[in-house]
């Protein structure tokens, strides 16, 4: 596993969660989120328990709460959407502080907020404890088509290179006294985007040549084998199984 291969969300640490094989973690997070999404929204307490479960995982992974909360900001546009719901949804109205709010809209807002937040939190935990390369290997291990994994790894490898080219083009524009201020400057920006596409595509062709020169024939050689022991699978399964228990209880009680 390549050490130091960090991306924006990854937090390097040694913890039982970091040590789990990536495909176990991906599968666990996916199942967890699926369980959360299937929980009836009326079982308010269940979502509290889910949050506690995630907090326990975060604790085990030594991910500080502040880090987790800051990353939840990505959800903000949907919070706005959820806040809107009680106003636009139909059905029975309840009066709160002089506002007529739709009851089903309130439930809907709660539903989106609770499930969306838990989903983002679970994904953030996954990304915070798993290296980029490991995520890709994990996806491959979970039978994602190899070609798709290859495309994704090329995207990750060259994302920085292409972004950097874009940055240099901006600096070049600004050094010659051009700063885009309005719609009338879009033409110049679009030409930069076009040039960026051409450069990226041509780089793709060069990368292909370099690969073929080293014996590439359509499949990536397997360099790292991933294997998970039964114990590791059991550890990873703890989260979704606990959530499933909560969910089933929720269904029985409501």
């Amino acid at each position: 596993m390549g050490a130091g291969h960090a991306h924006k969300l990854y937090r390097h640490a040694r913890s039982p969660v970091h040590a789990l094989p990536p495909h176990c973690k991906i599968a666990a997070v996916f199942c967890f989120v699926l369980v959360v999404v299937s929980t009836p929204r009326e079982a308010v307490w269940a979502f509290g328990l889910y949050a506690l479960l995630l907090a326990a995982v975060a604790g085990a992974a030594r991910v500080p709460a502040s880090f987790l909360l800051r990353r939840l900001l990505i959800e903000v546009p949907f919070v706005a959407f959820a806040v809107l719901m009680p106003f636009v949804a139909g059905g029975e109205r309840v009066h709160v502080l002089g506002l007529a709010l739709s009851q089903s809209g309130l439930w809907g807002a709660w539903n989106i907020l609770a499930k969306g937040t838990l989903g983002v939190a679970a994904s953030v935990l996954l990304a915070a404890t798993t290296e980029l390369r490991a995520l890709l290997l994990g996806l491959q291990r979970l039978r994602m088509p190899p070609l798709l994994v290859q495309i994704a790894s090329f995207m990750i490898r060259y994302g920085d290179v292409v972004t950097d080219e874009m940055r240099r083009m901006r600096i070049a524009r600004e050094s010659r006294g051009f700063t885009a201020r309005g719609v009338r400057h879009w033409g110049v920006l679009a030409r930069s985007a076009g040039a960026l596409f051409i450069r990226s595509y041509e780089r793709g062709e060069r990368v292909h040549l370099a690969m073929v020169s080293r014996g590439y024939a359509g499949t990536m050689p397997v360099i790292d084998e991933l294997n998970a022991s039964r114990a590791q699978w059991t550890h990873a399964a703890a989260l979704p199984l606990a959530a499933l228990a909560v969910c089933l209880t929720g269904w029985m009680l409501t």
Partner: peptide, 25 residues
Amino acid sequence: GERTAPLAGLVAAFVFAVQMLNFPV
């Protein structure tokens, strides 16, 4: 099939980058 991975990967990197290009209104 050989060409697909590098070319599509680079185009994906391009899409990823170009989504960050700001067009001022």
